[in-house]
């Protein structure tokens, strides 16, 4: 939600930040069809960048190439200072990755799973044990002794986040990280990710949920048909985009809105909810108008899917042109 974005946007420091992820002219084709087309993207330390786009935009392919799981047809991937194609082990050692629908070994406990992955990172036994204990506490899985096979999707997602942070990586890549989390899990996830960014990690979050990306990310890279069609803060991108659709619900009939930027308002028959098309984010003004009229506010949000689609349509047209 836009207001929250304003609140949680990370201010860019004055000093120069190192690029921890550098994707240069990345291209990948499947059966001759480009899934990712000449994509260049940089993520600096302490930055949380959201990779946004609809299904088939090339997000997953970009993530898989960045993590070294598939080879690009062209272009270069640099993690910290290591080129993935030349030094995959050094590059991968700097990455903490959580795939969408993350999988673990069902016959092992959470701690045993993390211990196995910690060994692959060549973490020393004492440090490994300490780190695993810390992470299980932070993701709320401490004291859970059941095997991972008995975990819910949400618990696996939490464990996935712990695994991504296991080696205290300077680069964290998260693919649809909140897909199976409950509200408490989402809140914990945001805290953990923000803390990791504050500690200097460069974080790339892939999602098709605009609201999620806009809440957590300091920058957004918008993909469409394998191409980067927009790259900037949410404000910068939405300013370039088209109208926003805001849904508002009250506990009593809503008042008439006379706020600048409103293009149209559609009320439900009982007037307790309305859909407002606006040229900019006017949620604060709407909230003021509703509460001033003595109507308790039940819900106020941007229709993110419509907004995202509107943005994409505009950028697609520009890209095609």
């Amino acid at each position: 939600m836009l207001r929250i974005v304003r609140e949680c946007s990370i201010k860019q420091p004055a000093f120069i930040l190192l690029n921890m992820i550098e994707l240069t002219d990345l291209t990948k084709r499947y059966n001759g069809v480009p899934a990712v087309d000449n994509l260049s993207l940089r993520v600096s330390e302490g930055e949380i960048v959201g990779l946004l786009g609809p299904n088939g935009a090339g997000k997953s392919t970009t993530i898989l190439m960045t993590t070294g799981l598939i080879e690009p047809d062209a272009g270069q991937i640099k993690i910290e200072r290591h080129i993935m194609q030349k030094n995959p082990l050094l590059a991968k050692a700097k990455i903490g990755y959580m795939p969408e629908d993350v999988g673990f070994y069902p016959g092992l406990t959470a701690a045993d799973n993390l211990d196995f992955f910690g060994r692959l990172y060549e973490m020393e036994a004492g440090r490994r044990k300490k780190r695993i204990d810390e992470l299980l506490v932070s993701v709320g899985l401490d004291g859970v002794s059941t095997l991972v096979g008995g975990y819910s999707k949400g618990m696996r997602q939490r464990l996935g986040l712990a695994k991504a942070l296991l080696n205290e990586p300077p680069v964290i890549i998260l693919d649809e990280p909140t897909a199976n989390l409950d509200p408490v899990g989402v809140s914990d996830y945001r805290k953990i990710v923000r803390q990791a960014a504050a500690d200097g990690a460069a974080i790339l979050v892939s999602s098709h949920i605009l609201s999620e990306v806009s809440v957590i990310c300091s920058r957004i890279a918008l993909l469409s048909r394998g191409k980067l069609v927009a790259d900037g803060t949410w404000q910068e991108i939405s300013d370039q985009g088209s109208d926003l659709i805001v849904r508002v619900e009250g506990r009593l009939p809503l008042p008439e809105f006379s706020i600048g930027g409103i293009r149209s308002v559609s009320y439900t028959p009982d007037r307790t909810s309305a859909v407002i098309v606006a040229s900019q984010d006017i949620r604060c003004e709407i909230a003021d108008a509703v509460t001033s009229a003595g109507v308790p506010l039940r819900n106020l949000q941007i229709d993110s899917e419509s907004a995202e689609e509107a943005l994409l349509q505009r950028f697609r047209k520009e890209a095609d042109a």
Partner: peptide, 14 residues
């Protein structure tokens, strides 16, 4: 099937 292969291969291992 357990979707752990992708996780495993994202680690520093050939």
């Amino acid at each position: 099937e357990t979707k752990s292969l992708k996780v495993l291969l994202s680690h520093p291992v050939f």
